[in-house]
Nucleic acid binder design. Structure first.
Lengths: 232, 232
DNA sequence: AGTTGTCGTCACGCAAGTGTCACAATCCCA
DNA sequence: TGGGATTGTGACACTTGCGTGACGACAACT
């Protein structure tokens, strides 16, 4: 399971700087897009929907601050985290930058490390995890908050993949899924594994659930699997 | 849960500035105390126990940084949030300020709006937890007042970081946290350390707890850690 | 000066988890 | 009632994640 790399849009008019930042971020596991102007940036945002923006203060045409303000005003992009970049000596503008809606602020020159650190922090805060309630199905309970599965109050030990699989099933009951769909939903889209691998994990999960609950996972011959409380 | 009004101690040697800040804060619903020197500030802290401190960088006698460091070193005041104020151009000292233990950092001139915003943010972070009650979990006791941990009444010696980690766990039991979340909550948002560092501190903590209690800290493989009385 | 204590990082090794295969078991339909 | 298709199951090598000890840096104290 490779972490879904977040996409970062780098907006700066100087190509070497963009490059440098991009290299640093890619080494840290992020995907990068570059834009030299506000127009380019806007296009990228619309098309590729980055997860956050590194925005230079000084830009030809519309200034970075103005752009940030615009983004924050638009409902569609208001949630998009922004980190402002500024050259040293322009620091007076810090307040303006933050008031324009930037989530953080870095002054050049900065170490790649600091950049990655701030980026992580900002992304972390920007990802509000939906409020997750425990799911109980006839004594089988999965608690996403505690990251724990219990069968009649006694804990069940399963691996991460089986956990995700079970979580998916319990939040999508009574419906049959093909192996391909399960790979998409549980493993995450762009990984290639054999479809039969699903069978193996299904088996491991059934085994872990024990006789009391293994029947909840039903085989739909020729199609895939289904999680259901009703007997088939 | 919400106290009527948080009390803020303003430490600055220039009376007009103190006044201005005080007015701004009072309009936002905070109570204010003022101090012109480190000595006055110290007296206020001991007597009136403010909820946080606005601390000017430049002070007659002991500098603000030094004072912050001293406060953070003392167990009784270590939890007290500090926001450093500094005149423009001294920003190189930002790192020093944060390293001295300041929770945030504002450069003059600043808008009242920004001040209040930062203040809110910092206060939100500062232990909102029901105060100073000792927590006991099966013989493992943490007493926030004495700043002490005992296992079956025999004292346990742990470092500050392990203490904060344990305190966080004991006030947030049963729930799984990722390394990133722990870094946010225990280390504080604005520092970057490797995620694996968490592992090391977990180990140090487990070791200190000994065989009787180390099982309370459970590894959630692929996710993070959890403090739980139930077996996994 | 040295000493002590704490912190963050790294490298190594083990153990748990993962994906794939081969073969057995089962189903379904001609 | 076969026989092909589909699924269950155990075993295997490979990968990943975590525990662990050691080390250097730094600050505070002697």
């Amino acid at each position: 399971m490779t972490k879904a790399g977040k996409t970062v849009l780098i907006v700066d008019d100087e190509a070497p700087i963009r490059e440098m930042i991009a290299v640093a971020l890619e080494m840290a596991g992020y995907e990068c897009m570059e834009a030299a102007s506000v127009q380019e940036a806007h296009a990228h945002i619309v098309d590729n929907k980055p997860d956050m923006i590194l925005l230079d203060w000084m830009l030809p045409g519309t200034s970075g601050v103005e752009f940030a303000r615009r983004l924050k005003r638009d409902d569609l992009t208001a949630e998009l985290p922004i980190i402002m970049l500024t050259a040293k000596g322009e620091e007076d503008n810090k307040v303006q930058g933050l008031e324009a809606g930037a989530d953080d602020y870095i002054t050049k020159p900065f170490s790649p490390r600091e950049l990655v650190a701030r980026l992580k922090a900002v992304l972390r805060r920007a990802t509000p995890q939906g409020i997750e309630e425990p799911i109980d199905v006839g004594g089988l309970m999965l608690d996403p908050v505690c990251h724990r599965v219990t069968s009649n109050n006694s804990p069940i030990d399963i691996g991460p993949t089986e956990y995700r699989l079970l979580q998916f099933f319990m939040t999508h009951q009574e419906r049959a899924y093909s192996r391909a769909q399960l790979l998409d939903q549980v493993w995450g889209g762009n990984v290639y594994v054999e479809e039969r691998t699903v069978d193996v994990h299904i088996r491991r999960l059934r085994k872990a659930l024990g006789e009391t609950h293994e029947h909840l996972i039903q085989t739909v011959r020729g199609t895939g699997y289904r999680f259901s409380t009703k007997a088939s």
